[in-house]
Amino acid sequence: MLMAPYFLIFTTFTVVPVVMSLLLSFTHYNMLEPPTWAGWSNYIRLLVQDDVFLIAVKNTILFAAITGPISYMACFLFAWLINELPPRLRAFLTLVLYAPSISGNVLLIWQLLFSSDSYGYANSFLMSWGFILEPVQWLQDPRYMLGILIIVQLWLSLGTSFLAFIAGLQNVDRTMYEAGAIDGIRNRWQELWFITLPAMRPQLMFGAVIQISTAFAVAEVSVNLLGFPSVDYAGHTIVTHLMDFGTIRFELGYASSIATVLFSMMLLTNLLTQKLLRKVGE
């Protein structure tokens, strides 16, 4: 009974929309007329005819493959190091590292840093030291756009997963380390692999889900930094493609097929991550 309100809200605002999106992905729907059955035509168009979607898939996979694992390991590494500090210093550093992920105007810093004129910090520094002779169009040149997007996302990545790891490290039973020393554990790395990580499996799984979702669902950073759409679609992702068809063109059936493909990619990645995390401590 106590969990019934949560399940009601979860079913209404998560399960039902996901099921409706899956059903709408097989229709033509523009919000003004009733949906009409389209079969597999949306998926055929998506995978065979939509060249921009293929660019978005490539960018998203590359982005997720780099930012996902690196940000996940960085979250745990910083949490592990901070956990060894005195309580007051630990609380201060936790706030400092977590702050960028909740700051509303944080992207303004990166816009100033990579501004395309000579007053941008990156251009000003490189020109003053003679590395370049004229300003670089950092946020308009397709050669640099995805790399900048990855750097910014890594800087923003110390968010919820970082806090979950801090909490998990704080709750590890200290007597387990004493028992481990009796059983033959001799250094900190063995403690980490055989005691700390197995004791933190719930937090590790939660952090993995959050990081995977963040990596695959990147859109806001790309839109605010690189524009919408970005030059030559160099910063285009699956979510920005979904925004294009769902909120601008109002082709909701086609947008639902994009959402379904994205959901499938995230689900498969989560299942693979769960399988890998089960081997921790073996």
Rank of each mutant, 00 (worst) to 15 (best):
C75P: 09
W80R: 01
P100K: 04
R90K: 11
A99C: 08
F78A: 10
W110F: 14
T94K: 02
S101W: 14
S116N: 14
R88Y: 10
L89T: 09
L107Q: 03
Y98E: 09
S103D: 10
A79I: 02
F76E: 07
V106R: 13
A91T: 06
R88P: 15
A74G: 09
L81E: 04
A74T: 06
N83P: 08
I82E: 02
F92Y: 15
Q111S: 13
V106S: 14
E84G: 12
I82N: 03
P87L: 07
W110N: 06
Q111P: 15
I82G: 01
F76R: 03
L93W: 03
V96R: 01
A99T: 11
F114Y: 13
P87A: 01
N83E: 07
T94M: 01
A79S: 04
F114S: 04
P87I: 10
L77S: 15
L112F: 11
L95K: 05
I109S: 06
L112I: 14
P86W: 00
V96N: 06
V96D: 00
A79C: 02
F76M: 06
L97M: 04
R90Q: 15
S116L: 04
Y98A: 14
S103E: 14
C75E: 15
R90C: 11
S103W: 15
Y98C: 11
S103T: 15
L95S: 05
F78L: 13
L93D: 04
P86H: 00
P87F: 08
R88W: 05
R90M: 05
S118V: 13
A74K: 04
A91D: 11
S101A: 11
T94R: 01
L107K: 04
L85Q: 02
I109A: 06
L89Q: 15
A79W: 02
L113G: 09
W110C: 05
P87N: 11
P87M: 08
L113N: 12
S116W: 00
R88L: 01
L89D: 01
L95M: 09
N83F: 03
